[in-house]
Amino acid sequence: MTLDDLRGTLIACAGEEESAALNGDILDMTFEDLGYDSLALMESASKIERDYGVALPEEAVADADTPRALLALVNSLTAAAA
């Protein structure tokens, strides 16, 4: 999963109005600073699970507080599943 893939997922789950916050270098910004609450993240995690065929533990998603951390989680799980 790339950062652009994650941006698309976040926009699909939270709506276009949030997309402005996703421009630029956001890898190390917290999801809270980007305007995403835990509900939006869980919805995004569900979409990632469907799209990538991985199971994301809720606690691990909650601990992944930045796009970089969430990408690392998803990519490690997809690599392990391959």
Score class of each variant (00 low, 15 high):
residue 68 R to D: 04
residue 43 E to W: 01
residue 6 L to G: 02
residue 2 T to Y: 05
residue 3 L to D: 02
residue 37 D to G: 07
residue 2 T to H: 02
residue 37 D to N: 14
residue 52 Y to A: 14
residue 54 V to P: 00
residue 63 D to F: 03
residue 42 M to W: 09
residue 29 M to V: 01
residue 75 N to G: 10
residue 77 L to N: 04
residue 29 M to A: 07
residue 67 P to A: 04
residue 39 L to D: 08
residue 28 D to H: 02
residue 73 L to C: 05
residue 72 A to L: 01
residue 1 M to V: 01
residue 20 A to D: 13
residue 41 L to D: 01
residue 59 E to C: 01
residue 79 A to H: 04
residue 49 E to A: 07
residue 68 R to G: 03
residue 28 D to L: 02
residue 9 T to L: 15
residue 35 G to Q: 07
residue 26 I to T: 04
residue 11 I to P: 00
residue 62 A to H: 12
residue 39 L to Y: 03
residue 55 A to K: 12
residue 23 N to Y: 12
residue 53 G to L: 12
residue 37 D to I: 04
residue 11 I to R: 14
residue 14 A to T: 06
residue 70 L to V: 01
residue 34 L to Y: 00
residue 67 P to N: 01
residue 62 A to C: 09
residue 19 S to E: 08
residue 42 M to I: 14
residue 14 A to V: 03
residue 69 A to Q: 07
residue 57 P to G: 09
residue 64 A to D: 04
residue 62 A to D: 13
residue 46 S to L: 15
residue 33 D to V: 04
residue 61 V to P: 02
residue 65 D to H: 06
residue 12 A to V: 03
residue 11 I to T: 15
residue 2 T to A: 11
residue 8 G to Q: 15
residue 8 G to I: 11
residue 4 D to W: 06
residue 66 T to Y: 00
residue 59 E to I: 06
residue 3 L to S: 02
residue 17 E to D: 11
residue 13 C to I: 09
residue 26 I to L: 09
residue 23 N to R: 15
residue 19 S to P: 00
residue 11 I to N: 05
residue 66 T to E: 05
residue 39 L to Q: 10
residue 24 G to D: 10
residue 4 D to P: 00
residue 2 T to F: 07
